[in-house]
Write a protein that binds this DNA or RNA. Structure first.
Length: 887
RNA sequence: AGGCACGUAGCUCAGGGGGAGAGCGCUACCCUGACACGGUAGAGGUCAAGGGUUCAAGACCCUUCGUGCCUACCA
């Protein structure tokens, strides 16, 4: 079929499904390593396998897809590599919950069986989010989809671990870490969410052993006192001079603990005396190390008090606090209770209160890695957009602490370390050793801990391309061009990829990092399931179509600002999709038998076509710049503005009379060809933002067309700029608008044709008007045009001025003089105000001397024009007043 | 406690030193043969406040006031 007609209404759902399948079948998303042209590569931020598409993914995917489609059409060697993250704790939790419904506990299954279950789960549900990304139109190369826990990536993980260990950048040791008593695992600092909570500051009396009074300590966690092994005061605190070295009785226990002096203590906080619990507080642990204090654990992994807690054994930390307080009170040792708000850490997965917990864990020594990652951003090897995030990145890199990478869960990369039970040797290797290299013993146990999920994510940009093999992919696509992500994982992920990429590849993992906004609800609240304010992207797609949704996200994606999304907004942009569809339908109805003919270019006299071609050039430039600079909203806005308010509102209206001509003359041929060229360019410009509708229309254009993705992005040099045409059309548009304004204000019925009387100031203007008379008559509803001489004014008319041209519209009898008087006066007030401003400016000596000449000249010109207009309108007003006096 | 944003039309927000903008909403008139998911016209702003730089500031600098967010081991 040569010119398939488009249906009356655009039906997104069916079109989207068909076209997406078509793109896949045509293998249009597949990267070809050996393809020509500059490369453009991206790796997707791998969503959690447990996830379902939320607004953040939708935005993230849209922006990457825009970039990909743009570069694809630019003819570049493109790759967009997709995949998912095994999401250790999150996935384990999901599967555990599922098993719990069947009444099964993972410990009953055992580690191996449980992991099998998780893989089964992944087979079944792991593809959900991938399919949802497809509904967004994502042009990922699905043939290269990866999983952070697949075989290749696991190999990369082991390789990295072994190398870092050998370089002394991974170590194992006893430290206080963040412990989740529900997940029963260590968490990194980043995995802890801090939240301000109202609590109490308890003042507790610790009697001195000497019997000479007591020290009062202040604490928010009285239950930990059972594990106290010292009380610390500041060495220079006058209140406690001479106490250091003495001992106190630790209430509720039989123990005596020393008073020590340490400068860590803040004399202005609480009582200035600090109870020290090395096993249950990070700072206390440090103090303990400095003073060689005993370390006494009183809380177990499940946050229950252990045997060291004496009578409190078995109580959970909360119940224990109650009991301890009661007992202290009974003894008269609870001095005071103050209200106190402080931050409490919670597990980012299950929200359980974190317990600082002393245990043996694996760590990455990040300082040396961070140094390189810091420099790479400082010297611009990687640029972060918007730039303001660089500072945040620097701050964090400068204050980075070692990264706890071991997790006491089952789902994840098991740490490749083995312990020899005979001699205590620790062996770290790529594969399981058969015997201990130290004692030849065969009794080896593998470390049961697994690695933090983010450990494997940190390798994503190179592990997905085949590392540690030296693949062609790595050569061609690494470093990737840009990483598009939200700021919430700047530290979790971006910073760590920087460190690992630089360390193992010797090059940054990406040239650009584009940090996009967070999508919030219409009230600016973060969307979350618990708040119930989540807008489901898939619902939106069903309701409005992917293109409308994507365009909305793009239009709102201003740098550095969060997006407040409301459905009305999406509805508004759906209207735009509809507008484009209808403009295309109209255009297509005039493309019958059209064959491309390069000789059919508009002549200079053909201002309408020359104008739209000229405008097209600017639009291409602006849309392209927007994409290049990650100012997607500007591209979207430019497109919207042009398509709706220039192409549809003016160009299509201007050319209708020509298109409706009976005979197929050259003017009509050129116009049809120009319309075709402009529409084609518009579709290509729109494609990255609205992939489906643009492809659908494109495939309906005359000629052999496989896919818009095989077309090249519009080349602006093929749309010559023409300033003269632009000025001329601006003049005509303005004249038409002025007449419409008069009509509208004076309530002339839209259907009524009126005589347009003009008094021109120069011959050139008259020629212009004559050339465009047909447009004037149609678009301003004129019955005819009369040129007036200098002497004669229509007896009874409403009037206006445009570019020194006086406009009169004679109205027989019906004219309401008072209305016209009001209108003219209002206009004059505005003009005088404007004039006063410019007068003011121009009378400023400094302005005339220091401002650039062209600016001054422009102001002078403005003033001249305003003066003219004012004078003419004043004349019109005077005449109206005369007429009013007569009647 | 530090850091980072943001206060512009009724609402949501663009605005990169030289005449205050968009979308939605609102008002009036129109079903004109692509589109009523539409057309034409209109109303609506001391650009948070104060100071500074500049011939020129919504934009750049400082202060204040409000609002968000991020980071942090003050018990």
């Amino acid at each position: 079929m040569k010119n398939p007609q488009l249906e009356k209404g655009y039906e997104p759902v069916q079109v989207e499904e068909d076209l997406y399948r078509f793109w896949i079948e045509q293998k249009l998303f597949q990267a070809e390593v050996e393809a020509e042209g500059p490369t453009f590569s991206m790796v997707i931020p791998p969503p959690n396998v447990t996830g379902t598409l939320h607004m953040g993914h939708a935005l993230n995917t849209t922006l990457q897809d825009i970039l990909w489609r743009y570069h694809k059409m630019k003819g570049h060697n493109v790759l967009w590599l997709p995949g998912t993250d095994h999401a250790g704790i999150a996935t384990q939790n999901v599967v555990e919950r599922m098993l719990a419904q069947e009444g099964v506990d993972r410990h009953q299954l055992g580690r191996e069986k449980f992991i099998e279950k998780v893989w089964e789960w992944r087979e079944k549900f792991g593809g959900i989010i991938i399919n949802q990304l497809k509904r967004m139109g994502a042009a990922c190369d699905w043939s290269r989809e990866r999983f952070t826990f697949d075989e290749g990536l696991s190999k990369a993980v082991r390789e990295v671990f072994v190398r870092l260990y050998q370089e002394g950048l991974i170590y194992r040791g006893d430290y206080i870490i963040n412990w989740c008593p529900r997940c029963l695992t260590a968490l990194s600092d980043l995995e802890v969410e801090h939240e301000a909570q109202e609590g109490n500051l308890f003042h507790i009396r610790y009697p001195l052993v000497s019997g000479q009074g007591a020290v009062i300590v202040a604490t928010t966690r009285p239950e930990t006192m059972l594990g106290d092994t010292a009380v610390a005061v500041h060495p220079e605190d006058k209140r406690y001079q001479g106490l250091a070295g003495q001992e106190v009785h630790l209430p509720l226990t039989q123990r005596r603990i020393p008073i020590i002096a340490d400068t860590y203590v803040d004399t202005s906080f609480g009582t200035g005396a600090l109870k020290v619990t090395p096993a249950h507080d990070v700072n206390d642990f440090e103090i303990g190390k400095r003073h060689d204090l005993a370390v006494l654990k009183v809380i177990g992994p499940e946050a229950l008090m252990n045997e060291e807690a004496g009578v409190y054994q078995g109580l959970d930390r909360k119940a224990c606090r109650q009991k301890v307080l009661e007992d202290l009170n009974a003894l008269g040792l609870l001095e005071k209770v103050e209200k106190y708000t402080h931050n409490i850490g919670h597990c980012y997965r299950c929200k359980t209160m974190i317990e600082p917990y002393l245990s043996k864990q694996w760590f990455v020594r990040v300082a040396p890695l961070a140094e390189k990652a810091l420099k790479a951003v400082e010297n611009g090897q990687t640029r972060i957009y918007p730039k303001t995030w660089e500072r945040t990145y620097f701050d964090w890199m400068n204050n980075i602490r070692d990264w706890c990478i071991s997790r006491q869960i089952w789902w994840g990369h098991q740490i490749p370390a083995w312990y020899c039970d005979q001699c205590g040797e620790v062996i770290v290797d790529r594969t399981a050793p058969s015997s201990c290299p130290a004692c030849k013993g065969k009794d080896l146990r593998q470390e049961t801990d697994v690695l933090d999920t983010w450990f494997s994510s940190a390798l994503w940009p190179f592990s997905t391309l085949g590392w540690p093999e030296e693949t062609r992919e790595l050569k061609v696509y690494y470093p990737t061009s840009v990483l598009v992500t939200g700021f919430d994982i700047l530290f979790f992920w971006v910073a760590r990829m920087m460190m690992m990429g630089l360390h193992f590849m010797g090059q940054v993992p990406f040239h650009h990092v584009y940090i996009h906004a967070l999508v919030r609800d219409a009230e600016g609240q973060k969307m979350s399931k618990s708040k119930g304010n989540v807008i489901d992207p898939l619902l939106i797609i069903d309701r409005y179509g992917t293109d409308a949704f994507r365009f909305t996200l793009s239009a709102l994606a201003a740098q550095g600002r969060d997006i407040k999304l409301s459905e009305e907004r999406i509805e508004g942009y759906r209207h735009f999709v509809n507008k484009l569809w209808n403009a295309a339908r109209f255009s297509l109805s005039h493309f019958e038998d059209l064959t491309e003919d390069s000789s059919l270019t508009p002549t200079v006299e053909d201002t309408i076509n020359t104008w739209i071609i000229s405008r097209m050039q600017r639009v291409i430039e602006n849309v392209e710049n927007g994409i290049r600079e990650y100012r997607f909203n500007e591209s979207a806005h430019e497109l919207y503005q042009f398509v709706w308010h220039e192409f549809c509102d003016w160009y299509l209206e201007f050319i209708k009379p020509v298109l409706y001509q009976k005979e197929d003359g050259r003017e009509k041929q050129v116009t049809r060809m120009t319309l075709f060229r402009v529409l084609s360019a518009v579709l290509k410009l729109a494609h990255p933002f609205m992939p489906f509708i643009s492809e659908k229309i494109y495939q309906s254009l005359p000629g052999e067309r496989v896919s818009i993705l095989k077309a090249s992005f519009p080349d602006r040099t093929r749309f010559p700029a023409n300033e003269k045409a632009e000025k001329e059309i601006e003049f005509i548009k303005g004249l038409i608008s002025e007449i419409r304004n008069i009509r509208g204000e004076m309530n002339i019925p839209p259907a009524k044709n009126v005589e347009i009387c003009l008094r021109v100031s120069e011959a050139a203007q008259r020629a212009l008007v004559e050339t465009h008379a047909p447009h004037l008559l149609i678009l301003a509803k004129g019955s005819g045009i009369t040129f007036l001489g200098p002497e004669k004014n229509p007896a009874s008319a409403v009037s206006g001025v445009w570019e020194e041209m006086e406009i009169f519209i004679p109205l027989k009898g019906v004219i309401q003089f008072d209305e016209e008087e009001k209108r003219l006066e209002k206009e004059l007030v505005k003009l005088r105000k404007e004039r006063a401003q410019i007068d003011n400016k121009l009378s400023n000596e400094d302005f005339r001397q220091k401002a650039p000449a062209d600016v001054v000249e422009k102001e002078k010109e403005k003033l001249r024009s305003l003066a003219q207009k004012t004078e003419k309108l004043e004349g019109h007003l005077g005449r109206i007043k005369e007429l009013m006096a007569k009647s």
